[in-house]
Each structure stands twice: as C-alpha cells, then as structure tokens.
C-alpha cells in the first residue's frame, strides 16, 4: 500500500471523518480520495477547495505576507472542513482536505492528527 493510501486511511480514522482527499492545487484534481459519496462528492470538493487555496495564496501575496498557510478551517453548521497544504519538499503544490462531522469530531485532536499525517506524507 502506498504512502498516499496509508495517509488517506489514517485521515479517515480520525474521529468524525466523513471524507478525505489529497489534491494537487495546480490542476485542481485529487491524487487520492476516500469517503466520497452522494452527499460529499470529493471530486467537486477538490476542484472547489483548490479555488479557496489559490485565492488565499493570492491574497497573501497581495498583502506582502511572506508566510506559509499552516491550515485553513471552515466551520459549517454541521461539519468542519480542514485544508492543510503539504509542506514536504517533494510534495509541494498539494493539500490535504478533510470533512468532519461536527457532532463526532474533536477539532483540536483532528488538527493534531492531520499535522502528524502530513509530516509522514510523501507522494
């Protein structure tokens, strides 16, 4: 099993996870995804959240902020969506995306787990 598949499985093991994807934000296409369903089409999520990441990066550039995005949290009434750009030298241009059920998830733990999964991810 590749490192990518392992990472996706670990993401889905996080409490409350409903979907996980690793996305290339230069093309907007997912390299891998797990948990895609009728309620959460991860291909649509990959393309849509690519726009989110690109917009944020563009805004930071215009604000002259020479910083990195650690993660982006979007809180919906029933879900948390977390976007985490992958920082590894070999995996630049990718981000991890996951959706969590707000009733079952522990946000602090989920962010912590996501950070450790990202550290081991090599694509």
């Amino acid at each position: 099993m590749s490192n990518l598949d392992t990472a996706l499985k670990e993401m889905m093991d996080i409490d409350g996870a409903v979907g996980a994807a690793v996305v290339d934000y230069s093309s907007g296409m997912a390299l891998g995804m797990l948990g895609s369903s009728k309620n959460l089409d991860l291909q649509v999520a990959a393309a849509g959240n690519t726009e989110v990441v690109r917009a944020k990066l563009r805004t930071m550039e215009q604000l002259n902020l020479k910083e990195e995005i650690e993660d982006i949290l979007i809180s919906l009434s029933g879900q948390y969506h977390i976007i985490r750009p992958v920082t590894g030298r070999k995996s630049a241009g990718l981000f991890m995306y996951m959706a969590l059920d707000r009733n079952r998830a522990n946000l602090a733990l989920a962010r912590h787990r996501l950070r450790s999964i990202e550290e081991t991810l090599e694509v």
Binding site: V23, S27, G28, M29, Q43, V44, A47, T50, E51
Partner: peptide, 8 residues
C-alpha cells in the same frame, strides 16, 4: 486553469 473544475 483549475483542470478539475474545468472537467466538472
């Protein structure tokens, strides 16, 4: 272009 979105 966001190719994923282009396809969608």
């Amino acid at each position: 272009v966001n190719v994923g979105r282009l396809h969608l």
